[in-house]
């Protein structure tokens, strides 16, 4: 029964998927392409591409898409595919939901404990480092292009980067508005 398999597979991925969306994608690939043969590597690559381009966390996007494709590829109708999507998405969220509830409870209870305070004194600066790393890791030719490959796209990307920073830091414009503007600039200029 494919729904049970989907549930089990994605529950495990949710439970052991440390390290964010990209780490999860390699786990999903191992399970659904290599292990269960629910889809080809090419189909999976397409799913990852769409998951990166659409709004929402990459882990949720790929679980939703993989759930649908797995059911349809094994002979299910479209509505059964939707059920597959729901199963995979629910299963991937469930472990963290349970774990986070337990952790939240403890955290809210003990956050004033001196030892917990000390731990967070170390953690807070480290999280700033994580945020900086997330940003550095995204500064790739994939996202900005390169001066040699496409000078036009590169310099406009740099201009978008700088103006977004100014819009957020100096003028405190809502990030959603800035995103929409940049999408429009992309449509007009590229």
């Amino acid at each position: 029964m494919i729904y049970f398999q989907l549930f089990y597979t994605f529950f495990l991925i949710g439970l052991f998927g440390f390290g964010g969306g990209y780490a999860m994608i390699s786990m999903i690939q191992g399970e659904v392409v290599t292990n269960h043969h629910w889809m080809t590597m090419g189909e999976f690559t397409d799913i990852v591409a769409v998951s990166q381009m659409t709004p929402g966390p990459i882990g949720i996007n790929s679980a939703t898409y993989v759930g649908y494709t797995a059911v349809v590829n094994t002979g299910g109708a479209h509505w059964m595919g939707i059920l597959g999507s729901a199963t995979a998405t629910f299963a991937v969220v469930l472990p963290s939901f349970i774990l986070m509830l337990i952790i939240s409870k403890f955290l809210m209870k003990y956050k004033h404990h001196p030892m917990v305070e000390h731990v967070f004194t170390g953690l807070r600066p480290a999280v700033v480092g994580l945020l900086a790393a997330a940003c550095l890791l995204l500064m790739t030719p994939d996202n900005f292009s390169t001066p040699s490959e496409s000078p036009w796209q590169f310099w406009i990307s740099v201009a978008i980067f700088v103006s977004t920073l100014i819009a957020c830091q100096v003028y405190k414009i809502n990030p959603i508005r800035v995103l929409l503007c940049c999408a429009l600039i992309g449509l007009l200029l590229f």
Partner: peptide, 26 residues
């Protein structure tokens, strides 16, 4: 095309809170 505009914007959006967070983390 829209995404070519969105991507550098997202990188800057993540860079922006880094500075404020640095202040908060003292």
């Amino acid at each position: 095309r829209a995404f070519r505009g969105i991507r550098p914007c997202v990188v800057a959006l993540i860079a922006a809170p880094t500075f404020k967070m640095a202040k908060t983390a003292r």
